[in-house]
Design a protein around this nucleic acid. Structure first.
Lengths: 191, 191
DNA sequence: TGGTTTCGGAACCTAAGGTAGCGCAATTCG
DNA sequence: CGAATTGCGCTACCTTAGGTTCCGAAACCA
């Protein structure tokens, strides 16, 4: 029998530094901004060597995406009605992007992806697709309508963050929720 | 009398290469993407020296912003009703961002601004403010509501462009127009 | 003890934004 | 015409940052 999880691969095991690196990444981005948060500075803040980071993540973009995945976690979709699901998802997104360092890191890695197709693929498949699929499932909506919702919500929040350097205030998040709710007022599967 | 426009300052006059540089910028961005459209390559495509570009624009970001201002031109606001004004402005924005090279350059310079406060100031004051003021005037709306509209429209279009590499298709632009129109259905000055 | 993998560290490569200085060209002013 | 002034092309250079290479040492397994 070949065990599904071999007890442990040979060689020195990896030390549990992912959490330390993620924390160091966010705090460095928060203090210095995305561009000045170099891999070398992040490694120094985490107390490890730069080569150790490149042994685990192929590029800076991949590191940021994993850091964002860790910071976001799963989207809460416990609302009863579709309106409640959309509303809570939008507010959750705004809250996460408003957390210190998260919005900067998100906007920065998104920016890098503009002219880097490989990073764009990582962003799309690892970061956007899981949330898109969860929303499609919860709302019973086709892919292109959920993609449109994500474009509107994330695009608006990142544009505000990018132009002002500050997250969107609660009053405008309320307006954003009210604006997107009519997109999903019609029940898609009702007889 | 001191003439308002002195005939000509002493010294060798600047050659009229701005248009050539703008064209070279857009075509280089279109062919290579934003990050690989280096100032050196843009200068080569324009047939001039890199130092000549830096003699006229202090940074690459300032060059891109001027190039975008040239590409966009004034926003058409001839619509009769507020709904027509908003609708035409949104479609005009989507069309411009969809032009070859323009969307890439816009998304790229916006991305750079995320971690560059000076560039963000240039973007805000030179690119966003003129259009914001024209819209405030045409719609009779306060600053924060027009800023919200710009965040939604530009943010959504850039997010689509950044995630897919392609401009938004007409059907989704229609949905974007329908989504933002209710924001301005109430007349602000009616008795 | 030997095999295997990881870590830290230093040196290095490349690309790109941006600068400095020189010689020359074009134009205005006296 | 000549002098001063300004723009252009060119070369070389500086700095930062992403990413790689290589080596010795550490940690784990058999």
């Amino acid at each position: 029998m070949t065990p599904l999880t071999p007890a442990r691969p040979p060689g020195r095991p990896r030390s549990g530094i992912n959490d330390v690196v993620f924390a160091a990444t966010l705090s460095t981005v928060r203090e210095l901004g995305y561009a000045r948060a170099t891999v070398e500075r992040i490694a120094a803040a985490a107390g490890i060597a730069k080569t150790t980071i490149y042994r685990r993540w192929p590029t800076k973009g991949a590191l940021i995406v994993d850091c964002l995945l860790d910071a976001f976690g799963p989207v809460p979709l416990e609302g009863g009605s579709r309106a409640e699901i959309v509303s809570s998802a939008v507010r959750w997104t705004a809250g996460k992007i408003g957390e210190p360092g998260v919005g900067d890191a998100f906007a920065g890695v998104f920016s890098d992806g503009v002219s880097d197709p490989e990073l764009r693929e990582i962003l799309s498949s690892r970061l956007q697709d899981p949330y898109r699929l969860a929303l499609q499932e919860a709302l019973g909506e086709p892919e292109h309508r959920v993609l449109f919702l994500i474009d509107v919500v994330v695009g608006t929040l990142l544009h505000r963050m990018g132009m002002t350097g500050e997250p969107m205030v609660d009053g405008d998040v309320d307006a954003l929720v009210e604006m997107v709710l009519p997109l999903f007022h019609r029940e898609p599967d009702s007889p």
